[in-house]
Amino acid sequence: MTAVLEISGLRKTYRGRKGVRNALDGFDMVVEAGQVHGFLGPNGSGKTTTLRTLLGLIKPNDGRMAILGREVPRHLPAVAREVGAIVESPQFFGNFTAETTLSLLADAGGVNRNRVHSVLDLVGLRDRSKERVKTYSLGMKQRLAVASALLKEPKLLILDEPANGLDPGGIREMRTLMRTLSESGMTVLLSSHILGEIQLICDSVTIISAGRRVTSGSVSSVLAQHTSGGVRVRLEPGVDLVGAAQLLRAAGAQVNLEKDHFTVGNASNPAQITKLLAERQIYVSELSPVAADLEEVFLELTGTAPVAGHSRQVDETVMSAGKGGWGQ
């Protein structure tokens, strides 16, 4: 596979009155052609800074970036025609209609204005296209932003939180749209906090924390790397759950008791569980591996899982422990 997007060693430093902050600290990312690639990270981790830097809105301090095999920002004017992007919240001049907004962008980018109606139709704004953008809801503005990114039929589509403000139907439509675009050969880089969506849509992911990549790869491989090897055990109704758990604990198992089942964390040989329980006439009704989901992996890798009695600050992550943040 060829890489549509390559970033290596990207650095961006902000200097403020409170000191120096490394928004990006040697960040790396590779997005392969034809994939839907999820770009995840906690608030303030550097996702939007990465996208803005990639699109020439922010000047990096160091690092290398390439889109479609061409170095950016040097060749950005040449590749911009191939890249559709929305960055952060959708922003448009409110007094223009959606149709005018897109036709002005089409003119500026040298795109045929006839495309305007087809992309408005694609994102479901056809019937509202002659209304002023300031009358739109956040979800409608989001749809318009996606339409603007699709206007030039890009090879690489960069979407920053495209599901923001969308209703459940809209989120599902967006998911289908991403898939359709990917199947048509378009590469999609998708930044989102809706991890369930990312897991459903994306082929691969990169997770960023405190300006650095913490993991990347196909969704399945990332999940596999962080699957605990535990199993979920459910017994026949009426059987003493606590007694069975104590029996396994006595045999050295790490058992977490839940309401109607328990999990065994270090179940390298699940057959041992059924054997031990069966010897005491306790029969298992369900024995299934506990699969990690992307949310758990994300929280674990970024260290942003909520802790009871502790208010986590935005720059507080595993990567930033003891460093990062203002005043370094």
Partner: peptide, 15 residues
């Protein structure tokens, strides 16, 4: 244009 974000949009098209 600056205030509404239109300038940023435009620069995404014409960097």
């Amino acid at each position: 244009e600056w205030n509404s974000g239109g300038m940023m949009n435009l620069l995404l098209w014409r960097p």
